Simulated scan of single mutants.
Amino acid sequence: MRFVLDDDQRDFAAALESLLTASDPVAAARAWAEGDHERGLALWRRLADLGVTSLATDASPVEVVIAFEALGRHAVPGPWVESAAYLPVALGTEVEGIATLALPPHVPYALDADVADVVYAGTTEASVVGDVLTSVDRTRRLFEVSGTGETHPEAFDLAVLAVSAQLLGAGERVLADSVTYVKQRRQFGREIGSYQAIKHALADVRIALDFARPLVLGAALGEVPASAAKVACGDAAYLASRTGLQVHGAIGYTQEFDLSVWITKIRALVTAWGTPAYHRARLLDGLLERTGS
Rank of each mutant, 00 (worst) to 15 (best):
V4P: 00
D6E: 09
R10V: 10
F12V: 06
A14R: 12
L20K: 07
A22D: 15
S23Q: 03
A28I: 03
E34P: 01
R39A: 09
A42W: 10
A42R: 14
A48H: 06
D49V: 08
L50P: 11
G51H: 04
L55F: 00
A56G: 00
S60I: 04
P61F: 00
V62R: 02
V65P: 02
A75D: 06
G78I: 10
W80Y: 11
Y86L: 00
L87Q: 07
L87Y: 07
G92S: 05
V95H: 03
G97L: 06
I98V: 15
A99S: 14
L103A: 13
D114P: 04
G122C: 03
A126F: 07
V132D: 04
T139P: 07
R140E: 05
R141G: 10
F143Y: 15
T151P: 02
H152A: 13
P153V: 01
A155R: 12
L158M: 13
A162K: 05
A162V: 08
A162M: 07
G171S: 02
E172L: 07
V179D: 07
T180A: 15
E191C: 07
E191S: 15
S194Y: 11
I198H: 07
I198P: 05
L202A: 09
I207H: 15
R213Y: 11
R213C: 02
V224R: 13
A226P: 04
T243G: 02
T243H: 06
G244F: 06
I251S: 11
G252P: 10
Y253P: 00
F257Q: 03
D258L: 05
D258A: 11
L259I: 14
S260N: 07
T264E: 08
L269K: 04
T275V: 06
A281C: 01
R282S: 12
G286E: 14
R290M: 05
S293N: 08
